[in-house]
């Protein structure tokens, strides 16, 4: 098993936007010590090369080895206590799918994984904090709310500035992923490249148009897929408009904004 020596997160000094995480680890195999690092970064962030990272790794290793045994008390540190199941470097945890994934309901659109193309993206639930039963239940409810919204509302009320939904991935009667159009760039990351001008007025007008659509123009389908006569022009609120939930794609030379992430989207007046 590997032991984490240090973990660092990089943020943009001006926008405070997340850029990358680096994890430096140690493991022993056949009596030989190995050190390594894992790095996760957002798109368009220049990668460090190994030479730049080496001094950081060396310092982390030296600090870890020089610590008195008594101070090595954090789970996952070199010679520290055993980590619990589900923790970083700990034993794997198996969840009951019923507690994690929403049920596939009759009338939902199943999308077969074999038909996935490079133009599509599968949104899957993040399970990182699902060890906590309260958090697990919350996340399942977000996933439930989002698939229901795509299936009964957004699929039948498409808009140029809202991500297109193609169906859901189903495993053993549970919805394990949503199939959406793949969108190349998050608005947050687009803003880091100021060398390319951005038509701010146009982007804001497009997001406003998507919001007007959500707020005033939607109808809801009933369980048979028919228009629900009582549910016409139902206002919905996105409730999580921010730089990370707007994606940017291109239509010719024009940059097009698309709203994503509808797991907080509810009918106007309903509690979040």
């Amino acid at each position: 098993a590997a032991v984490v020596l240090a973990a660092m997160q990089g943020v943009d000094p001006e926008t405070k936007a997340y850029l990358h995480t680096t994890i430096i680890f140690y493991h022993e195999k056949d009596g030989v010590e190995h050190h390594g690092f894992l790095r996760r970064s957002c798109a368009d962030v220049p990668s460090w090369n190994l030479d730049a990272l080496r001094p950081v790794v060396d310092v982390a290793i030296a600090q870890s080895h020089n610590k008195p045994q008594a101070d090595r008390s954090q789970p996952g540190e070199l010679d520290g206590p055993q980590v619990s199941p589900g923790e970083l470097n700990g034993p794997q945890v198996y969840f009951n799918p019923v507690e994690v994934f929403p049920a596939f309901r009759p009338g939902f659109t199943e999308f077969k994984p074999a038909n996935i193309t490079p133009e599509l993206y599968i949104k899957r639930p993040q399970l990182l904090f699902s060890m906590d039963p309260v958090e697990r239940e919350k996340r399942k409810s977000y996933a439930e709310s989002e698939v229901l919204l795509f299936e009964t509302v957004l699929q039948h009320n498409e808009h140029d500035n809202i991500v297109k939904y193609h169906g859901c991935i189903v495993v053993d009667g549970r919805v394990t992923g949503l199939v959406l159009e793949k969108l190349p760039e998050m608005l947050l990351m687009r803003c880091l490249d100021t060398t390319r001008p951005l038509n701010v007025d146009d982007i804001i007008a497009q997001v406003q148009s998507a919001l007007d659509h959500l707020h005033t123009k939607l109808h809801v389908r009933d369980k048979d897929g028919d228009k629900d006569a009582a549910m016409v022009h139902v206002p919905f609120c996105h409730n999580d408009i921010n730089m990370q939930n707007i994606m940017i794609t291109k239509n010719g030379d024009r940059e097009v904004a698309k709203l994503v992430d509808f797991d907080s989207c509810v009918r106007e007046g309903l509690p979040l």
């Binding site: 608005l187 803003c191 707020h215 730089m243 007046g269």
Partner: peptide
């Protein structure tokens, strides 16, 4: 509650616009 729900979106868009104008003055 309904009014504040719509205001949520308006406020969100307002903050996005501020960020964009900062990045692309």
């Amino acid at each position: 509650a309904a009014e504040s729900c719509l205001r949520n979106d308006e406020r969100g868009l307002q903050l996005v616009e501020e960020e964009l104008r900062k990045a692309f003055p």
